[in-house]
Amino acid sequence: MSESNVTGQDAASSRTALSRLRPVVCGVGAALTGVLAVASCGNGSGNGGAGTSTPTAPATSNFSGTVPSGMSSWAESKKAEASASASAAASSASARASEFEASVSADTERARAEAQKQLAKVKGRGNATKDVSMTGVPLSQTHNVRALLVTMTNRTDKPASFAVQVDFSDSHGKVVETVVVGAQNVEPGQKAERYAISHKPPEPHLTAELAKAQRY
């Protein structure tokens, strides 16, 4: 056998062995990378051994279908931050409302306590709903506290006291807060003004309604 024939046979054997190894190498590469491998590993056909590449699906044995624990912890952290922020906003609104109330009048609390006692006796809406009006106060004037100016007019011929209940309702009509104000010894033909102050944050919007008004 001539040397040229031996060399040719060796080269052919090498190409055959290499073509057999390519699928194995490609399979190992795809398993290691875990991605869709479009490899240069062909089937050995065509010129120079370049052929059509075969995509290999990613390995999914390690995917559980659940959110990674790190992501879950992050989501819980953000939820807690949002809850704390809402709580802080409500607390701040309540504190501002208390400060505003304290600055309005020294006898506000005493009149309110008496008004609550009177309203507890009232059946229905009371006898003075036509003598009471309410006007919203701009937030810019109350340091972002929701407040109504309640005006009570004594249309009788003798001094009278008033007890007024204001209900604040959400967009669904549910009463979320009740505020009571009162005025004592209003002279005939005179008016008394008190602030009905909400301790809820200015948002979301609440609707105020005159629930009860009693003259006594």
Score class of each variant (00 low, 15 high):
13 S>N: 13
32 L>T: 03
20 R>T: 11
22 R>E: 04
11 A>K: 15
22 R>Y: 03
28 V>Y: 04
35 V>E: 15
23 P>T: 01
14 S>Y: 11
13 S>H: 11
17 A>I: 07
27 G>R: 12
21 L>I: 12
8 G>D: 04
6 V>I: 15
33 T>V: 08
22 R>D: 02
10 D>K: 05
19 S>C: 02
33 T>R: 09
20 R>N: 14
29 G>Q: 06
17 A>W: 09
27 G>A: 15
11 A>N: 14
21 L>D: 09
11 A>P: 02
35 V>D: 14
12 A>I: 11
10 D>G: 00
11 A>Y: 15
18 L>H: 10
11 A>F: 14
24 V>D: 09
13 S>C: 07
15 R>Q: 09
18 L>N: 11
23 P>Q: 02
24 V>H: 09
27 G>N: 15
26 C>F: 04
10 D>I: 06
10 D>P: 00
7 T>E: 14
30 A>Y: 05
16 T>E: 13
31 A>D: 01
22 R>N: 04
10 D>N: 05
8 G>T: 08
24 V>S: 10
29 G>L: 06
10 D>C: 01
23 P>Y: 01
15 R>K: 10
17 A>R: 13
10 D>E: 04
6 V>E: 14
31 A>G: 00
34 G>R: 09
35 V>P: 01
29 G>E: 01
5 N>F: 08
27 G>M: 10
34 G>L: 02
25 V>E: 04
5 N>I: 08
6 V>L: 15
12 A>W: 09
6 V>G: 07
23 P>C: 00
31 A>F: 00
18 L>T: 14
28 V>H: 05
8 G>F: 06
34 G>P: 02
7 T>Q: 15
23 P>N: 01
16 T>F: 14
34 G>S: 08
19 S>P: 02
14 S>I: 08
23 P>E: 01
29 G>W: 03
12 A>G: 02
33 T>K: 06
7 T>Y: 13
30 A>L: 07
27 G>Y: 08
28 V>T: 05
32 L>C: 00
22 R>G: 00
30 A>H: 05
14 S>C: 03
22 R>F: 02
